[in-house]
């Protein structure tokens, strides 16, 4: 199993505020890694750096052994190899579900329409978006459907890696399950994934490693059952106890 992504000593600050302070980790092919942590600790910034939407101040990122943070890198072709699923879906508002998935295939991969359509339909079916929804515009879809279309848009490009930035945080509670189910299936099918989420149930089920981030650093990392059930670090414990509180209130009573 080869290494797909390696992040080495990544630093980023906005003004005097240091958002990332020396992040280092790697992901092998087929692995799912989950990042948890309080908001404002640089998790989103980290994903944006990997996708080259944000330039880090220091440090290197490698995709399949190629340094993508070097100057003069072809950003578009790097991004085409990395899927990105946003918290607020960001489906193209003027395109139907099907066209959303097709755009990258025709304009980036340069595929003929018919082939793009075939791949797009396959991707939509794989996330449970059936034919009656293909011609709908984003505004006509539920949050869960939108996010699944967004996942289909990412997987249709056959990326090396998919980044998920809190993919269920903007969803109504009853819609979270359908999105997590799709993500679990993806993980089991061997997609390489880096997921920022508060869904510790998801992390328990599919993560190969959980990383707890706080104040720009990875404070603790390890198998989910260790980090989530037996956290060593005080800050991890405090964060998780708050998450558990929510679970208790929401699920049991």
């Amino acid at each position: 199993m080869g290494e797909v992504l390696r992040v080495e000593n990544l630093w980023k600050s906005y003004g005097r505020h240091e958002v990332l302070r020396g992040i280092t980790f790697s992901i092998n092919e087929g692995e799912t890694k989950v990042i948890i942590g309080p908001s404002g600790t640089g998790k989103s910034t980290l994903l944006r750096c990997i996708n080259l939407l944000v330039r880090p101040d220091k440090g290197k990122i490698f995709l399949d052994g190629e340094e993508i943070t070097r100057p003069g890198v072809d950003e578009a072709s790097v991004r085409a190899r990395i899927g990105f699923v946003f918290q607020h879906f960001n489906l193209f508002l003027h395109l139907t579900a099907l066209e959303n998935v097709m755009l990258g295939l025709t304009k980036v991969r340069g595929l003929p329409r018919e082939e793009a359509e075939r791949i797009a339909k396959e991707a939509l079916l794989s996330v449970g978006i059936s034919e009656d929804l293909w011609r709908k515009y984003p505004a006509q879809l539920s949050g869960g459907q939108k996010q699944r279309v967004a996942i289909a848009r990412a997987i249709a490009m056959n990326p090396r890696l998919i980044l998920f930035d809190e993919p269920t945080s903007a969803l109504d509670p009853e819609l979270i399950g359908e999105v997590l189910k799709v993500m679990e299936k993806l993980a089991r099918e061997g997609m390489t994934m880096l997921v920022v989420t508060h869904e510790i149930g998801f992390a328990m089920k599919v993560a190969d490693e959980v990383m707890f981030m706080d104040e720009g650093r990875i404070v603790e990392r390890g198998p989910p059952e260790e980090v989530i059930l037996r956290p060593k670090h005080e800050r991890t414990r405090r964060f998780l106890s708050r998450i558990w509180e929510l679970y208790d209130l929401g699920v049991q009573r």
Binding site: L53, R79, A80, V108
Partner: peptide, 12 residues
Amino acid sequence: GQWEAALSIGLR
């Protein structure tokens, strides 16, 4: 987000 999504799928 429309712009970011467009870049994220690899559009120039």
